[in-house]
Simulated assay, not measured.
Amino acid sequence: MTIQNAISQIWYTRCPVPTPVGLASQLGLLEETFAREGIALRSIIDSKDRDVRSSHFTHHLDYSFRHGGNVPPIRARSEGNPTRLVGITWTDEFQAIITLSGSGIETTRDLVGRRFGVPRRPPGIVDFMATTALKGLVSALSLEGLGPHEVDIVDIAIQGSVLDDREGPQLYGLRNRQAYGPEIAALLRGEVDAIYVKGTPGISVANLFATRTVTEFGFHPDPKIRINSGSPRILTVDERLAEDRPDLVARLLETLQRAGAWAESHPDEVRRFVAREVGASEEVVASANGPDLHRHLGIGLEPELVDAIGHYKDFLYAWGFLAADFDIGDWVDRRPWALLETRAVA
């Protein structure tokens, strides 16, 4: 009982993308769940302390959980940060290779020998933008029996850190900068011939500049083609929370299940809530995530979901983005799910 009463706050963070954590937060379910335990929720990404904000990527804070893109938590685990993988959500989204009209690139095969732009951030934080673009390229090329060695990969330098670039007049009052700006600029300057984009920002920027879609594969029937940094997204908790209070992790999962169940019968509200979460219009959300978005905000830990994360982890390791390899099975923690099952039986 002493341990249970020792926790007065829990840190949490989520990416600005469709997730059951984002939905549960907007519905007030998260605060309600933890308030019943006398626990305050604190947002990592909204903290004024840069070291706290960095936990969005490094997952170093005790008593914290994270739901979003899978590259940072996979990287953190490879560096030895003690975390547990407790849930997975698969929400498909627009993924495409785009080019400018007049580039002469009509199909994926036309990418052979052409320049493909890959964003590269300065050292310090795992380069999730580069990993995402490269996996998108590999997926697209594989559909035509091609490999990345047949394309000229060109680095696009991204200045600054996402940890620091969160306020100031250059954001015009918004919370985040529009994604794919440097990549589109390189495309317009003629420094590269094609780039990868995804999700709501990908749809928006492709529309804004009237680009040509070379190939779109975000809803491809083969899951290994769709797998990328956001497909699927993962829920991780730090080791202390997992070990000291597995009951709280179970309550978190139960709350996210409630949010997912609510979503299935509220498609219009879900689209509206997600639009608010990602900073886009409902029309863009519908285009980027498809008409069945409300049916894909659940959470689970089924073998096929774990295998998908393992597949992407292997890609990251093969391309040199991980400090070390590790076993996905050792990362997975099914104990909170067992607690939920016990409650259901009781």
Rank of each mutant, 00 (worst) to 15 (best):
I234V: 14
R84M: 08
A194Q: 02
A24T: 07
P18T: 07
V138D: 14
D62G: 09
H59M: 13
V154S: 09
V112R: 04
D292M: 07
R115K: 15
G28F: 10
A186Q: 03
A250R: 07
R189H: 12
K313C: 09
L339G: 00
R272T: 11
A288K: 05
P169R: 06
G113K: 01
A263Y: 12
L339Y: 02
S25M: 11
D92G: 01
A250Q: 08
G69D: 15
T255H: 02
G279H: 04
N289Q: 15
H67C: 07
A157E: 13
P20A: 01
R109P: 05
I3Y: 11
R14M: 15
H59T: 07
G38V: 00
D49G: 04
S229T: 15
P148G: 07
S229K: 01
E302F: 08
T83E: 13
Y12S: 03
D164W: 06
A288T: 09
N289S: 10
K48I: 03
W337Q: 04
C15H: 11
G87P: 04
S8P: 00
A35N: 07
G298I: 12
I44D: 11
A185Y: 05
D49I: 01
R14N: 05
R53K: 04
T131I: 05
E282H: 00
I227D: 11
L256F: 07
D268F: 04
F315C: 00
S142Y: 10
V274Y: 13
T91C: 14
G199T: 05
R115I: 06
V197Q: 05
L134R: 06
G173V: 00
R272D: 15
D165R: 00
A194P: 01
T200W: 15
H67A: 05
V214I: 15
P82W: 12
L316V: 02
R240N: 13
G160M: 06
K224A: 08
I158A: 06
I227A: 11
Y196S: 02
S43V: 03
